[in-house]
Write a protein that binds this DNA or RNA. Structure first.
Lengths: 200, 200
DNA sequence: TATAATATTGAATGAACGTTCAATTTATGA
DNA sequence: TCATAAATTGAACGTTCATTCAATATTATA
């Protein structure tokens, strides 16, 4: 049970790191601040994460895990029913449920580290490839898409989703935001339709 | 001429800031380091940019200006000939000439600040809206697209471009990179074709 | 219960941080 | 040329940073 304490402490620290980064930014969240926030001396933080670099590396793993978590319910559904409606999946992709599980500010701060850290870049890439494979799995079980290049379609759908997230983050006005979401959602539906039509 | 020295010094400092951020990251580039790199005391840096916040704010303006600069040649062409080929424009959008004028790491580091700074967010949004208007201008002068919703088309093209940039940054292998660029380029061409076809 | 491993504390380190300020040099305009 | 303004210097400020370490408390194991 000794190792359990260690693990739960680690988790506690990473979550504290994440919470403070959400408010003050990743670059303004120091080890001392994390300790203070959790009521422990900074030396205890460093006992579990010997350097700041390691701490950040673990935060990134946590964030990417959170991202996978968002897809979990849909993948469970796929497994049980052996089918999931692509349109519903796309709809969920564009829903703002994300923000409950993952803060965009922290996410993009971590993303910007891929340009100077190969390991982080690889971790991000693997995660994004995984997401595309999930979508491919869903598309492969749709009878309208049998024999189609679902890998390509999945790639094309996700690039719209990711571009949309990037761009939409600049808009605060809910009305404008919704209007633009609709545009990009339709853009993805058009992609799906295009592939389906070719089949007929 | 007094004000000229001041302005060129400011430019020198911002460019030094940018250069160091490219190598060490925005968050690791201090005022002291910028001064050292340029052979001036940190107090001189602060004479021109009273706080670090102001310094960052000016770096962001510089970066967004650089982004506009990339489009300059194409816009000149549009002005002179009163026409520019959309496909050529799209091709340029996907070219890696960007990296010579603007480092992706610095760009996304600054981007991540939009989530905690309203002014930065607004500046980013205005820039992105401007880019879309440029493309709309080009599309509007294409005879195949007369009467079409070029604003919508421009929005849909750019979201693919931006998603592609986000995603492609995770790939180092030039072969894989090129293969994926082709996919996304074709995705944009499909959008253009779709609108053109509807016209016939 | 004795022993070993783990968890936690608190004080201390030097380096780097952003920022201030008074003094000095250089350029400008009357 | 002289006065004024702008540009530049260098030393200093207190604060925060990541990190270290030896000492203590707690828990697990034998």
């Amino acid at each position: 049970m000794g190792i359990k304490i260690s693990e739960s402490r680690k988790r506690e620290i990473i979550q504290g790191f994440y919470q403070l980064s959400k408010v003050n930014g990743l670059e303004n969240t120091s080890i001392a601040k994390i300790g203070k926030h959790l009521g422990m001396p900074p030396s205890l933080v460093m006992h579990y994460f010997p350097t700041r670099e390691i701490l950040i590396s673990n935060l990134i793993s946590y964030i990417l895990q959170q991202m996978l978590l968002i897809y979990q319910p849909m993948l469970k559904e796929l497994e049980i029913q052996n089918y999931a409606d692509p349109h519903t999946f796309v709809n969920r992709l564009f829903s703002r449920d994300w923000n409950l599980l993952l803060d965009d500010g922290v996410f993009y701060s971590c993303y910007s580290l891929i340009f100077r850290n190969k390991r982080i870049k690889d971790e991000y890439r693997v995660l994004h490839e995984k997401l595309r494979e999930y979508l491919k799995d869903i598309l492969d079980r749709d009878e309208n898409l049998i024999g189609k290049d679902t890998e390509l379609l999945s790639e094309q759908i996700f690039v719209v989703v990711e571009g949309a997230y990037y761009y939409l983050s600049m808009f605060d006005d809910p009305e404008v935001y919704e209007q633009k979401v609709t545009i990009f959602k339709n853009q993805v539906y058009d992609l799906l339709r295009k592939y389906e039509v070719q089949h007929l």
